[in-house]
Every structure is written in structure tokens, then in C-alpha cells.
């Protein structure tokens, strides 16, 4: 079972993630081309300006207005992306399979970052259950996406601390990671892919076309 999830399934997950992401981005760009006005309205300068103001914490007015949320969301998203990439255990797998490796973080830091991701998921779950606006627009898919996001971290955390049966937990963890990879292009987790584009367009429209700003 381990061999299956570690081998063919991992291959499949990465291929689907990469190919699926490319497909979705190309599909989106084709749709924008059809719309005629999208590309003529774009400007590199204003796209970058918008991104700079929205990927750096507290670099726009709204983030300053909601400091707690800003801190949580940045901590969550940074840890979500950084932890799996720089986790030593993951790099070893890359090294074993492809003979490539890169800088890794200490397991303690990774542990804390995993907790941050899980805490972030709990925070978002809490918002979904209690904030009337969020609750009103939440359906099963939102809980599912949250679960897909949280599961690799929860299982990874458990596996690392070797609670329960390590081997089983490891298999579940790998499976959870693979599910998440596959889910990214084909669910609203694709906001990870589209963020740059939606920001660039709105930044361009507000800056290049409307001579204003979007932060």
C-alpha cells in the first residue's frame, strides 16, 4: 500500500496537479481573450503595483482595518505553502526518487508551522460557523475544501509525532496530500492559481484604465 501511494499515486497526483493547473490557466486565458477587452486593459506596471500591495501584509488599507484576520491569513497561507516544500522528510523523498535536494527547515519549526496551518483551519471553520455573512454563503463544498486543506497537515502532524500506527498514518497522510494536489486545479482551491491573475486584472483596470488604485 505504501508503495502504491508513494509511487504511482504520487506520480498521478503531481501530473494531474501540474497538467490540470496548466489546463485551467489556459482555459481562463482563452476565456479572457474571447472577451476582447481584458488584455488591452492590462498593464504590467499596475498589475505589479496591485500584487505588491496585496502580498505584503498591512500594505493596504483593508488589511490595516482587520489586523487579526490579516495576521491569521498570512501566517496560514505562508505556512501552508512553505512547510511541505521545505520539510526535511519531503526533501528526502525527492532526493531518493530524483536525487535532488534543497534547503530544509528544522523539524521543530515545521512542527510549529503545521500547528499554525491547523489553527488557521480551525479559525476559518469557526468563521464559517459563526460569522453570519460567511455562514450564509457556506455550503458542503466549503467544508470539504477546508477538510482537504487541513487533512494533510493534521495527518502529517500525527505521523511525525508517531501517535497511532505510524505506517498507516503515513499512508493516510500521503493520500491526503495527493488529494489536495489533485483538488487544487479543479476546485475553488484554484484561487491559489488565479490570485495573480485576478489581482493583476483588477489592479490594471483600477490603475491603467481608471487612473485610481486598488489598495
Amino acid at each position: 500500500m505504501y508503495e502504491l501511494v508513494r509511487g504511482p499515486l504520487a506520480w498521478a497526483a503531481f501530473i494531474i496537479f501540474i497538467a490540470g493547473s496548466l489546463y485551467r490557466i489556459i482555459y481562463m486565458l482563452a476565456g479572457c481573450k474571447k472577451e476582447k477587452i481584458v488584455f488591452p486593459h492590462m498593464s504590467l506596471k499596475h498589475s505589479l503595483a496591485s500584487l505588491v500591495h496585496w502580498v505584503i501584509p498591512f500594505n493596504n488599507q483593508y488589511m490595516k482595518q482587520r489586523p487579526a484576520f490579516t495576521i491569521v491569513t498570512f501566517a496560514f497561507h505562508i505556512c501552508l505553502v512553505v512547510t511541505p516544500i521545505f520539510l526535511l522528510a519531503h526533501i528526502i523523498l525527492w532526493d531518493e526518487s530524483w536525487n535532488i535536494s534543497w534547503w530544509s527547515m528544522s523539524d521543530t519549526i515545521a512542527d510549529y508551522m503545521t500547528i499554525i496551518v491547523i489553527a488557521g483551519c480551525i479559525f476559518f471553520l469557526y468563521r464559517r460557523l459563526t460569522d453570519p455573512v460567511v455562514k450564509n454563503v457556506t455550503d458542503a463544498s466549503d467544508y470539504l475544501l477546508l477538510a482537504i486543506t487541513a487533512l494533510p497537515f493534521i495527518t502529517g502532524f500525527i505521523a511525525y509525532h508517531q501517535w497511532f500506527d505510524y505506517k498507516t498514518m503515513l499512508i493516510i497522510h500521503i493520500l491526503a496530500g495527493e488529494i489536495m494536489l489533485i483538488a487544487i486545479p479543479f476546485t475553488r482551491l484554484s484561487h491559489m492559481l488565479f490570485f495573480v491573475f485576478t489581482r493583476a486584472y483588477f489592479g490594471s483596470e483600477q490603475g491603467h484604465v481608471k487612473h485610481s488604485k486598488d489598495w
Binding site: 481562463m28 476565456g31 481573450k33 472577451e35 481584458v38 475553488r188 491573475f197
Partner: peptide, 16 residues
């Protein structure tokens, strides 16, 4: 076209 599709598929229902 692309805008509506992307907007609907990007909205994470955060309510911000």
C-alpha cells in the same frame, strides 16, 4: 468570458 468564470471559480466565500 474569462472574467466571470474566473471570478466564480476563485471566490473562496470568505465574506471579506
Amino acid at each position: 468570458g474569462g472574467r466571470l468564470w474566473t471570478y466564480v471559480n476563485t471566490c473562496i466565500h470568505c465574506g471579506l
